[in-house]
């Protein structure tokens, strides 16, 4: 194949962009880069060519822990059936102002 350099693969980074001041960083995508400095530069070129960001975070992809997708929703089920956690559950105050 092309050369031996291809065996030393650049690690994968996840990229988070702050769209403008006052907003949180949001996942934009991923890229490969040899180190953090290059990852940030590449992220700027790849994900902010049209003023999409005012700040960039890069995180090594293997540093991210995720919930198990195989839990078939069970993991998040405890939030279901608990409508009392929402303001709309309480109806007696209807018509009463500022409540």
């Amino acid at each position: 194949m092309s050369s031996s350099a291809d065996s030393s693969t650049w690690p994968l980074w996840e990229v988070f962009i702050r769209g403008s001041r006052g907003l949180s960083h949001v996942h934009a995508g991923s890229l490969h880069a040899p180190d953090a400095t290059m990852a940030i530069r590449n992220a700027r070129d790849l994900y902010t060519r049209r003023n999409e960001g005012t700040s960039v975070w890069v995180v090594p992809a293997d540093a991210i822990m995720a919930s198990d997708p195989d839990s078939k929703g069970g993991y998040f089920e405890s939030a279901q059936g608990k409508s009392y956690r929402h303001a709309t559950y309480y109806t007696q105050s209807e018509g009463v102002k500022h409540l």
Binding site: S2, S3, S4, A5, D6, S8, W10, P34, D35, M38
Partner: peptide, 23 residues
């Protein structure tokens, strides 16, 4: 495409070597 990839190999190698040494 092949020549661009082959000719850029040393740049990718150098970047990895630099990152390894820095760490």
């Amino acid at each position: 495409y092949r020549s661009a990839r082959d000719e850029g190999a040393w740049v990718r190698e150098a970047a990895v070597a630099y990152a390894n040494r820095a760490s």
